[in-house]
């Protein structure tokens, strides 16, 4: 049995909607009752379409967004009640890689300064800096000369390498990567994915890999959670999930990936309608208005995530 590193229990995040001054406050449930477990050395993929709450979940894991309810347990302790100093120690262990490498770097700082930022805030003795900086930048496939340059001198792929370098310089245990390759070109995407996989092996990292690109997730993740409108609808081993999706939404999602093989003409499931707005989600199962198997019960009762064939699915069909 692998050890649990990070566990999310019944996580919920409400955002208050701005309305008129005296109107009763109304809320949007960005995520609603999410349960996840990340094991040591594993990559947990979170996939879903826009508005499904995958990025909010990722940010709640680091308390970049304060969850409204629920627990995030890291190495046995609930981080949602951490004090400032405990939180700081926690952030040394859990780092984040962002989607837009351009936007996530201060244009006025050199690469060296950007990478040294975590060293400063966690008071690493200056004597170790040089060693850490050079070894880390080499780990991500750049070299020492690059340390004194500015972000605008680099291409997108190189910037993402620097973003990864910043995340691993403190040698954390977990990296939450929010769409780390979606802003990159296809050929560069695979470079970065290879790099992430190498680093995982080299540094014993665990990843939470958030992406809308199912192909990428299929490749990199060991287990995958599929989210729809703030809820996890299916959670399974990557291989099983892609070979035999159970939830109707997962089925549609996987069949919508454009096939790269010209001879494989599979009949696609084209979902009807749009993703409903998270501020007025449908009652019952949130997927029922678009689901071809929707029954009466789906309109009223929200299905819970339950064990089916050794995996977890939230659907009344099972």
């Amino acid at each position: 049995m692998k050890t649990k590193l990070l566990e999310v229990k019944d996580l919920e995040k409400r955002f208050k909607l701005k309305k008129a001054v005296f109107a009763p406050p109304s809320f949007v449930h960005a995520i609603n009752g999410v349960n996840l477990v990340l094991h040591e050395g594993e990559t947990l993929g979170i996939v879903g379409e826009s508005g499904c709450g995958k990025s909010t979940t990722g940010r709640c894991l680091l308390r970049l967004i304060e969850p409204s309810h629920g627990e995030v347990i890291f190495e046995g302790k609930d981080i949602t009640h951490f004090t400032k100093s405990e939180l700081k120690a926690f952030r040394k262990q859990v780092q984040m890689v962002f989607q837009d490498p351009m936007d996530s770097m201060n244009p006025k700082m050199t690469i060296g300064e950007i990478m040294a930022e975590p060293l400063i805030s966690h008071k690493i003795p200056k004597a170790q800096w040089q060693e850490l900086l050079t070894s880390t930048i080499k780990l991500v496939g750049l070299n020492e000369d690059h340390l004194s340059r500015y972000p605008h001198e680099f291409s997108g792929g190189q910037k993402q390498r620097i973003g990864i370098a910043r995340a691993i310089i403190l040698r954390p245990k977990v990296i939450v990567a929010d769409e780390p390759v979606s802003a990159l070109d296809v050929s560069v995407q695979s470079q970065i994915i290879n790099l992430l996989q190498d680093l995982q092996e080299e540094l014993d990292l665990s990843y939470v890999f958030i992406s809308h690109d199912l192909g990428v997730v299929e490749h990199i993740a060991h287990r995958v959670a599929v989210m729809y409108l703030g809820e996890v609808v299916e959670l399974a081993d990557s291989e099983e999930l892609f070979r035999d999706p159970l939830h109707p939404y997962t089925k549609a999602l996987i069949s919508s990936i454009p096939r790269k093989d010209p001879d494989e003409r599979k009949e696609r499931i084209i979902l009807k309608g749009e993703i409903p707005s998270p501020s007025s989600p449908p009652a019952g199962c949130k997927f029922h208005p678009r689901c071809e198997f929707a029954a009466e019960i789906c309109k009223t009762k929200r299905p819970a995530l339950k064990q089916v064939y050794g995996r977890e699915v939230a659907c009344h069909l099972y």
Partner: peptide
């Protein structure tokens, strides 16, 4: 666009 919507539009 999202992947399920992409499928609709391509169709």
């Amino acid at each position: 666009l999202d992947v399920t919507i992409q499928a609709q539009v391509l169709d």
